[in-house]
């Protein structure tokens, strides 16, 4: 079992509300309970080892918002992934009338992975302050503006943590969109 919270360095200039550090199993539980989760990945997902894990999560049925140029990694992978600009997405997620990427409506739980830390933290700041969405960071850096976040991880423990998360997603209540 990898401990994703022991190394958390809460480096922040943001303010009063900070993400709760979480373990992979807890993250998996929350995602499993979600009605309509969305996995939002950034361009750093194109690292093969991370991409494999993102695809695994998508295969369980979590739709993927592929931001930056990450969509490149999802072509022909047999999963649901759509390109969208992450700043636009941040705006749409606060709008009840947004039909979603697939026309099936708004999401309730946002999972973020493989982003530029300072960039996604800004997008999360918007969601934190102006929406009721649950946001979970499973990135390797602690993301203060998420609702919950892994701590600061080395590349190796990050991979391990993602594997543990995926395992728990699968063995949990078989979750499907």
């Amino acid at each position: 079992m990898v401990d994703t919270i022991k190394n958390t360095r809460i480096y922040t200039t943001w303010g009063t509300k900070t993400a709760k550090p979480i373990q992979p199993k807890t993250a998996a539980n929350i995602i499993t309970k979600a009605k309509r989760p969305l996995l939002v990945v950034g361009s750093a997902v194109l690292d093969e080892e991370i991409l494999d894990r993102a695809v695994s999560i998508a295969k369980i049925g979590v739709p993927v918002a592929a931001t930056g140029h990450s969509i490149k990694g999802f072509v022909d992978k047999g999963v649901y992934a759509r390109y969208i600009n992450v700043h636009s997405l941040g705006g749409y997620l606060g709008d009840h009338s947004w039909p979603g990427l697939d026309g099936k409506g708004q999401y309730d739980t946002i999972i973020v992975l493989a982003h530029k830390k300072y960039y996604i933290n800004q997008v999360l700041s918007g969601l934190k302050n102006f929406t009721n969405l649950i946001t979970i960071s499973i990135d390797k850096n602690y993301l203060q503006n998420a609702t919950m976040s892994f701590g600061n991880l080395s590349h190796e423990s990050h991979l391990e943590a993602l594997d543990e998360l995926i395992e728990n997603l699968i063995t949990g209540k078989q979750w499907r969109i």
């Binding site: 200039t13 943001w14 303010g15 009063t16 700043h87 941040g90 997008v123 918007g126 302050n129 102006f130």
Partner: peptide, 22 residues
Amino acid sequence: VYTPMCDQCCYCTFGKCDLSGN
């Protein structure tokens, strides 16, 4: 589309005010 850099305002001595969650 607002993405605050900080949850607070410290513009005057009424504050700091916590503006998080709008």
